[in-house]
Design a protein around this nucleic acid. Structure first.
Lengths: 205, 205
DNA sequence: TAGATTGTTAATCGATTAACAATC
DNA sequence: TAGATTGTTAATCGATTAACAATC
């Protein structure tokens, strides 16, 4: 079916387009153009049109794009026209902040469980969740059919946690531990490490 | 002096090389090769050699790279052979987690202040810091000559905070609020938005 | 109709890879 | 010396941009 392979770099820009469109909607706007969107994001108008044209024709010549319609189309492409249940492994500062984060709402995700291996933390409350024993993670993730996970454990434990998650059926992992993970090719991993971003900027200072 | 302009995409990979090298050092290793480094990072050996060659000759034919020496060279290139003072604006869950984060140590950064505008939060303790009134941010940032900042305030306030930071002399901003910031061209901005990373993965599920 | 903006093609630009001489 | 690996060049590959016909 999906004959054409879309470059990963194009897929990676769609969430940015979607975020900007949702913001425009909040501002009460109805119509935008590739030029305006590009200015907001620091991306050329031609690139935005080219990216979108990979998936279909969403605009009207002379008019531009219906913000609401284009956002809905991108949501479908990214499969965030539904809500994905997400588990958080590691109930330290970062894991707790993520579990309480309000920013997932309306963007396709919902944290449903948080795990830790520290007996001191198991049973305690983090936002609306009770921290569960990581020993039960495999069972509970399987049962719920959860495919998206976030890792916020110390670096030394991250690879072992990733292995467990893959075993339990996770297919998308967002890793906050500052190291590269080895996972099977069918499992997707993304990384968040603030130091990487900071070091990228100090080069220019 | 710096005649040659290094592509931004190359600069962006150096922190990943550095992180992997520091990990190897912790493992007690002394020597590595472009091939080994590449395997760890999922990057081709040729690309690593090409990237490094933009800055100098750091290896030995037949032998590879001294991990310690290469790490030190990359630290110098990225200007993280020193410690940058960083301020955090916003003492919510994310800002607090960032202010307490142990992962900055030995990687070139140190959080030195955290600010908020909420009277309930000002004066309270976050890790080793007392939350300061954001009204004093400009003065204190200027005084300390701080050039690196992190924004962890609600989206609605992020642009105003960014404007204040730029005004106070910030030149590198790491923004956790889920929106694009407008800053003058000489100011560098990087973004962390977990939803962007997650949406990039659900496309493939 | 005149003006604006899309979707798409072709041209340009830049990044990655393959290959190998140099050399440790 | 033989084997290994760098640094670099040239070839390949892929992404971005410019331009414009189509058309709202």
């Amino acid at each position: 079916m999906d004959q054409k392979v879309i470059p990963d770099i194009v897929v990676g820009r769609l969430p940015l387009y979607l975020r900007a469109l949702q913001r425009m909607l909040e501002e009460g706007r109805y119509i935008t153009s590739s030029q305006e969107l590009g200015e907001r994001l620091g991306i050329s108008a031609a690139q935005i049109r080219k990216d979108l044209s990979q998936f279909g024709e969403f605009g009207k010549q002379g008019t531009g794009y219906s913000i609401d319609y284009l956002a809905e189309q991108i949501r479908q492409i990214l499969k965030v026209d539904r809500v994905w249940d997400v588990v958080v492994i590691g109930a330290g500062d970062i894991g707790s902040a993520v579990a309480r984060y309000q920013g997932f709402a309306n963007r396709g995700f919902r944290v449903v469980m948080i795990f830790d291996n520290d007996p001191e933390k198991i049973g305690t409350q983090v936002g609306q969740f009770t921290v569960q024993d990581i020993a039960r993670a495999d069972e509970l993730i399987r049962e719920a059919g959860i495919r998206v996970a976030m890792i916020s454990v110390p670096s030394a434990e991250a690879q072992a946690v990733a292995d467990q998650l893959v075993d339990a059926g996770a297919q998308a992992i967002l890793n906050y531990a500052p190291l590269s993970l080895n996972v099977p090719p069918e499992v997707h991993v993304q990384y968040i490490d603030p130091v990487i971003h900071l070091q990228r900027m100090t080069y220019y200072l």
